[in-house]
């Protein structure tokens, strides 16, 4: 099965890409999916570029975790800050199982093919787990950023040192 043609790979990644893009509202779907401007459409272009790499990696039965991570991370990074729940954000990865089977319907009829499918499914499961890690690290990052930002405003410290005063709670009189 290492002889999957480039053409087929393209089709697989194109379908996978469509699955992701279909998780967005109709109006943005067309924008994310079709606009090829690297800078005007970073979401679509990043996903497209990396899903191609990911397709290539997932089909190699001997999974190279570093390569997978490189391709997976930019996609998850984007989806982690969009309005998805974690399951919604990562569900697209599982879809590859179906995509691949639809593209290769006869594979399950031979013993060799079944073995390949099994291995592929295992790959996908592993990728999902990796995605989960990445997703969590992204979320973690966001929280860190939020905390840092809050910390940066060291107002509490200043207030403690009596360097700063706040607007009093009953400020109505002051206005007059």
């Amino acid at each position: 099965m290492d002889t999957i043609s480039t053409e087929k790979k393209q089709r697989l990644s194109q379908n996978w890409f469509s699955v992701i893009i279909n998780t967005y509202p109709t109006e943005s779907k067309a924008f994310f999916g079709k606009n090829k401007d690297l800078f005007a459409n970073p979401v679509g272009n990043t996903i497209k570029r990396n899903i191609e790499r990911l397709t290539h990696e997932v089909l190699l039965l001997d999974l190279n975790r570093d390569h997978v991570k490189e391709a997976l991370e930019p996609i998850i990074r984007i989806r982690a800050v969009q309005e998805f729940s974690i399951s919604d954000a990562l569900a697209f990865i599982f879809a590859f199982k179906t995509i691949f089977r639809k593209e290769n319907p006869s594979l399950s009829q031979t013993e060799e093919g079944r073995l390949y499918l099994e291995a592929l499914d295992a790959n996908i499961d592993e990728i999902v787990l990796m995605a989960l890690d990445i997703y969590m690290s992204c979320k973690h990052k966001i929280y860190t950023l939020r905390i840092n930002e809050a910390k940066k405003h060291v107002r509490q410290l200043l207030i403690k040192k009596n360097l700063m005063c706040e607007v009093p709670e009953t400020g109505v009189e002051i206005i007059r």
Partner: peptide
């Protein structure tokens, strides 16, 4: 305008 990458050039 639309920006595309052709080779390593924009």
């Amino acid at each position: 305008s639309r920006v595309e990458i052709s080779g390593d050039r924009l």
